[in-house]
Design a protein around this nucleic acid. Structure first.
Lengths: 337, 337
DNA sequence: TTGTATGCGTTATCAG
DNA sequence: CTGATAACGCATACAA
C-alpha cells in the first residue's frame, strides 16, 4: 500500500506552525529563528518528508536543470566533456538531462523541443552533422533561455554563446610540423567539412601548405566518418597510390591509429615513410609506437567551462553572448620516434 | 521583454472552449472530435504554446524521467552503456538524468537523494567502489520506485533488480584459454575485489586454476585502478620477477594494453613469452598486434536491456524484481598471432 | 519572526 | 463529446 506523500502541510500541522514557515525553515531562510528551523528540519526528517522539486520548479519557474544534446554519447571525447559538465553542474547546484541526436537534424529538433518543454534553464549543444540552420533553437532565444554550443558550433554570426578551440590554428600547427620535417605530398582525411570544426582544421591545413608554397588539391581531401573501419579503408586506398603520400593529416586519433596500424602491417614505416598526425590525444594514442603527433583537446575543461559559462548567463540574466576559445596543446611526439 | 507563457487557458479562450477540452485535444484524447482536436493543435502551434512537463508531472506524479548513477561517465564501457540507455529510453518516451558518484559512497547517496526528490520514475545504478551497503536506496523501495543495478550490482540477496553478465564464467573461460595454451604461472591484475564484478572474475580465475591442478596464491593477485599508469607500473614490476609469469589475466583492456605495450618495449614476446587477456573488447583492442584475447562486454545491449526492464517494471507496477544475465562473447585472438 | 492567501499549468473527476 | 472545478506541492507578496 502506497502511503500518501508527506508535504510541508503535514509538517506544519504536526508542529502547529504555518506551511509558509515550514517552507522557509526547510531552506534556512534568514528570517526564521534558528530554533524553529532546526525543529522543522528534524520533524521533516522524522516524517519521511521529501521535497518535491517539480512543484518547486513549477512555482519558481526555475528547474536547475541543464539540457545537453550531443551527436552521440559513446565517443571518448564526448564522454570526457560530459564528465566535466556533470561535475561542474552538480557543484553549482544543477544537473543534466543528456540526449543524443545521432547526427541527424530531425532528432536534434526533437531533443530541443523536449528539453524546451521540460523547462531547462539552459541548453548545451554540440550540433549534428546535418545541422545547417539553427532555427529550432529560436524558441529558447525568444524566452531568453541561454543556448551554448560546445565543440561543434554553427558558423558565426549567430545569437548564441559558444565554447570551442581554435581549430584553424590547431590544424595549421599540426600541418606545419609535418611540413617542417620535409613532407611535400600531404593527404587530409577528415569528417564532414560542412561542420565548422572540420572546415576550420582544413583551412589551417591549407594555410600551412601555402606558407610552404605547396599547392592544395581537393584530390587530397578525403571525407569519411573517422571511425576505425574508415581508417582501414583509407589505408588500403593509400597503399594503391603512386607515389605514396609522405604525410597524412587525420582529423581524429581513432582513425589515425587505425590507419597507422594498417599501413604498418603492410610494411610502411611510420613516420619514416609517412608521417601521420591525429587529433584529440585519446588515452590510447600515447601507447602507440611510433607515437602519434596530435592535439590535446581538453574535454574535461571544455565541459566545465561550458557549464560555468551558461550558469553565469542564467544567473546574471546576461543578454550578451559569450564566444570562448579554449587553449589546446600540441603533442609533438614525432621526434621521439 | 518577456512575454507571458501561453497556457491551455489562453488557447481555450481563443477557441471559446474549456481548458479541459484543450488539454484533451492536445493529446488526441479519443473522446474529442477529430475536428476540435485539429483546431486546438493548430492554434496551439500558432500561439507558440509549449506544454509544461513540470506541471503535468506534478499533477500526474509521473515524470517519465529515469535517474542514472554511474561511478564515472568517461570510460569507454560506461559511455557505451549510457548510449544504449538513452536510445531505448527515448524510444519508450522517457529521458535520462545522468549523475556521477566518482566512486564514493557519499556522492552516490547525494545523487540518489536528488534524483529521489526530482521524482524520477525509476533509478539505474552502477555502484561505486565504496558501496558496501545499499540503505540509501531504501526510500525508493518504500515508494515502490524501481531500482535496477547494471554492470556493478551488490551481492545478493537484495530487493532490487539487476542486469549483469556472468563474470564468473567469463573469468573462468578467459583463464582456461591461457591454461590450455600451456601457461602455468598466472598473474591476476584486477580492480577493487570488494566489487562483485571483480570478485566474480577472480572466482572464475581460481576455478580454472583448480581444474588444471594449479595452486592459487594471493601473491599473484594485484589490485589496481586498472588505468594506463597502473598498467605501466604493473609491467615494470613484472619485469623484475624471476621467473617471469607466463600468463596475465587483466580485468580490463585499457590496463591490459598498457601492460602489453610496456612489456613489448622491453623485448618480451607477447603472447610467446607471456600471454595476456583483457576484458571489454574496447575498440582499440582489435587494432593491437598481437591481438588481445578478451571478452566482448555488450555495453549498448546492457544499456538497452536495463532501460527496457526498468520501464517494464514501472509500467506494469510489477513488485517482483528481475535479475538478468546477459550473454557475452569470448574473443579469442591468441591463435591468430 | 510568522501567518494568510493565492497562483504556477496541468489533469482527473464528475456532471451535463 | 464537452464543461466546471478541484487538486498536485510549493513559494511568495502582503499583512500582522
Amino acid at each position: 500500500m502506497q502511503k500518501k506523500e508527506v508535504t510541508i502541510y503535514d509538517i506544519a500541522q504536526a508542529l502547529q506552525v504555518s506551511p509558509a514557515t515550514v517552507s522557509r525553515g526547510l531552506k534556512n531562510h534568514p528570517s526564521i529563528s534558528k530554533k524553529t528551523c532546526q525543529k522543522i528540519q528534524e520533524t521533516a526528517q522524522k516524517m519521511g518528508y521529501r521535497s518535491n522539486a517539480l512543484a518547486s520548479s513549477l512555482r519558481t519557474s526555475r528547474s536547475f536543470t541543464l539540457g545537453v544534446i550531443v551527436p552521440r554519447l559513446d565517443s571518448n571525447f564526448m564522454s570526457t566533456v560530459l564528465a566535466g559538465m556533470e561535475k561542474s553542474a552538480v557543484e553549482l547546484g544543477y544537473h543534466l538531462i543528456i540526449m543524443q541526436s545521432f547526427e541527424t537534424l530531425e532528432k536534434e529538433k526533437e531533443c530541443a523541443q523536449l528539453l524546451f518543454n521540460h523547462r531547462v534553464d539552459g541548453l548545451l549543444v554540440s550540433t549534428s552533422a546535418e545541422t545547417g540552420h539553427i532555427e529550432h533553437f529560436a524558441p529558447f532565444l525568444a524566452k531568453s533561455i541561454p543556448v551554448l554550443f560546445f565543440d561543434r558550433a554553427p558558423l558565426d554570426p549567430h545569437p548564441f554563446s559558444s565554447v570551442t578551440i581554435d581549430n584553424h590554428r590547431a590544424g595549421y600547427e599540426l600541418t606545419r610540423i609535418m611540413l617542417q620535417k620535409g613532407a611535400t605530398r600531404l593527404l587530409h582525411i577528415t569528417g564532414n567539412t560542412g561542420l565548422r570544426v572540420y572546415k576550420e582544421r582544413l583551412e589551417g591545413f591549407k594555410a600551412a601548405l601555402k606558407e610552404f608554397n605547396l599547392s592544395y588539391s581537393t584530390d587530397n581531401l578525403w571525407q569519411t566518418n573517422l571511425g576505425v573501419e574508415d581508417g582501414i579503408r583509407a589505408a588500403a586506398k593509400i597503399l594503391q597510390m603512386h607515389p605514396l603520400p609522405d604525410g597524412i593529416f587525420v582529423a581524429n586519433d581513432t582513425c589515425a591509429i587505425a590507419i597507422i596500424n594498417h599501413l604498418q602491417s603492410n610494411n610502411i614505416l611510420i613516420p619514416g615513410q609517412i608521417q601521420v598526425s591525429g587529433f584529440n590525444n585519446d588515452p590510447f594514442a600515447s601507447l602507440f609506437t611510433p607515437q602519434l603527433t596530435t592535439v590535446e583537446y581538453p574535454g574535461i575543461a571544455m565541459g566545465e567551462r561550458a557549464v560555468e559559462t551558461i550558469i553565469d548567463l542564467i544567473q546574471n540574466k546576461i543578454k550578451t553572448t559569450k564566444k570562448e576559445s579554449l587553449d589546446f596543446k600540441l603533442i609533438n611526439r614525432s621526434s621521439t620516434r
